[in-house]
Design a protein around this nucleic acid. Structure first.
Lengths: 340, 340
DNA sequence: GTAAGTCATGACACCGGTATCAATTTATAG
DNA sequence: CTATAAATTGATACCGGTGTCATGACTTAC
């Protein structure tokens, strides 16, 4: 509602404050070499005019932008949206903006596209959720381009400041112990694609958890799914048709676990009386299914937030630099019960 | 892998092509005032060097950016993610990037924040899904700032080029006719908050559909929910406890409809034998519930894509300008059956 | 063959910031 | 009180593009 129809520039501020634009620039960038009086005078003008520096001009001079990229290729949009929310939580008020960029991680042109994207946009930083976070060529490219990044994944593939580890294996182990403690011994596993590191880690953790209880995975009770509902239905159908039917099924994500519900219903089996089911992700569907499904919860939004905090400096926040460890947690609901 | 460790600039291209940078600029911007030979020579150099203009520098000179903003405040992340995907589909290869920006539409500072966001980033355009699309003050601000925008909503609030209408009412009417044709007469409605235009439109459409079949909505069978699962459970509990229990429940979104499943199970009622359920959105959970739920599908991703096509010029595509009409579609599954 | 008009191009300023380095002011030491 | 060092400040170039306008080359008209 000011008279001027155009936002003030650094020149306007400089003129009004009676200093050079460079001094205004120093104030903006919190240079220590500005006299206190001058600083205050300039800040007053900035406040009065509502001046805010132009990120393009600033970026041009700084040779970087104030954009953070979220590069993802996740079959599960729920993951993306949760990570994204957390990231935005951390970035709110920081002056940085989030640019989202879905990719096809199997594309042969992936690296070229990423190079162009990052170089042209001069990204300040990049967040890579799994499974893109598992691509070492991409990480190497980011290092070559000297871009900050945070990889979010189930296992430490990089130095701590650049890697946020979700310890999926621990959650899977917890699920294994849970089922074992309920008395199950014939426990099936519906795995994800082995090309996903998360799938490998979860399986390893699950087997470790079983081993703790003196159990081991029967290869006949292991099916590889595609992390999709349909693949879950298919795998479960096979498992539930076995003569020596498993009394419990652990699925490496909730989508496939939901498929087990469907297959069980179609086979006339009750959950959990005839077969216990435990999923992974604790996506919103888990608690809405009937019976509500036990699932390993990953704090996806928190992970996004922490990744954001690792990446961007945010004056609105001054958390200690200690990374709270990301720990999965088994949420026990009604889909897992004592065997029998 | 080139010798130079720095991306070529327009100056490099100009020097190598033996022309001025202004001429290179003309080639980039497809000016007609460049001799064919010159254009080819420059384009060859551009191709050989892999030159691409710096969006920041370009934006600074153009006084705008190549960023499109997605401004949303949706209680349902599923909606956001679908719209976002569609938008990104349309923008792929266009040279524009998508900046996502969640907001609190009830915040008193919303307009100020949006003004700063849009002015500072000099956004090329903005997409507003509902319910932010329903805020007329925001639309007025965008017009004042002379920013292109597309509002996505259930009813035409703006001129066609700026508004993408999803005709939610038609979908709700289809659901009404569907239930009426199955013989239901005691049909309950679980509405969303009346502050959501979508909720009002869906209800209006539903009543219109009932009227077509000579039915009307019994006020005793109308509950207002909050578009959440929990509110759906609560509303359904009340409805299913009525002496004159409804034989069918239409919910204005799937979240609440899922709540009806839970309430029905807890009340010992079978779907669809004792009560039919129809939802709205056809979110992924609809087909995974048991029995699979009938629901009105909104082509959210398509809507995002069309919004993107309306907003950004994309050389990779040259669709006719005719907007395919967005029509909701009732997906009939197993949760709705003949009364009795 | 020359005047006038069109086409193609480039020189230079500018978009709104920051970096460099010299100039000026202030503080400290002798 | 003066010499020297340290703290402030600003002039100017530059980041990588585009806008404006003048200039030179080439046509077309007479």
């Amino acid at each position: 509602m000011e008279g001027s129809s155009r936002r003030p520039t650094i020149n306007d501020v400089a003129r009004m404050a009676g200093v050079s634009k460079k001094t205004v620039s120093r104030v903006i960038n919190e240079s220590p070499f500005v006299k206190e009086d001058t600083r205050k005078a300039v800040q007053t003008i900035i406040r009065e005019t509502g001046y805010a520096p132009d990120p393009q001009a600033r970026g041009l001079a700084f040779r970087r932008s104030f954009l953070v990229g979220l590069i993802y290729d996740n079959p599960n949009p729920q993951h993306t949206v949760s990570h994204q929310q957390g990231l935005l939580d951390a970035m709110a008020g920081s002056g940085f903006e989030l640019v989202v960029r879905p990719v096809d991680r199997t594309s042969p042109r992936l690296l070229d596209e990423m190079r162009v994207f990052i170089e042209r946009q001069k990204l300040f930083g990049v967040v890579l959720p799994s499974p893109v976070s598992e691509d070492e060529r991409l990480a190497a490219l980011l290092q070559e381009l000297d871009v900050r990044y945070v990889r979010i994944g189930s296992v430490a593939l990089d130095e701590p400041g650049r890697m946020l580890v979700s310890h999926d294996g621990k959650g899977a182990a917890e699920a294994a112990r849970h089922l074992a403690d309920l008395g199950h011994t014939r426990i099936a596993l519906i795995s994800g694609p082995t090309s996903f590191r998360s799938s490998v880690e979860r399986r390893k953790g699950f087997e470790a958890g079983l081993a703790e209880r003196g159990l081991s995975l029967d290869p006949a009770l292991v099916k590889v799914g595609g992390y999709t509902y349909e693949s879950g239905v298919g795998a479960a159908k096979e498992l539930l048709a076995l003569k020596a039917r498993p009394t419990a099924v652990f699925c490496l994500n909730d989508e496939m676990a939901t498929g087990v519900y469907t297959a069980a219903r179609e086979a006339g089996l009750r959950i959990p009386e005839d077969v216990s089911v435990v999923g992974f992700d604790d996506s919103s569907i888990a608690s809405r299914l009937w019976p509500p499904m036990s699932s390993v919860r990953l704090p996806l939004r928190d992970m996004g937030r922490i990744a954001g905090e690792m990446l961007v400096p945010n004056p609105m926040r001054d958390k200690p630099k200690v990374q709270p460890d990301i720990q999965p947690e088994l949420i026990v609901r009604a889909s897992s019960a004592k065997v029998g």
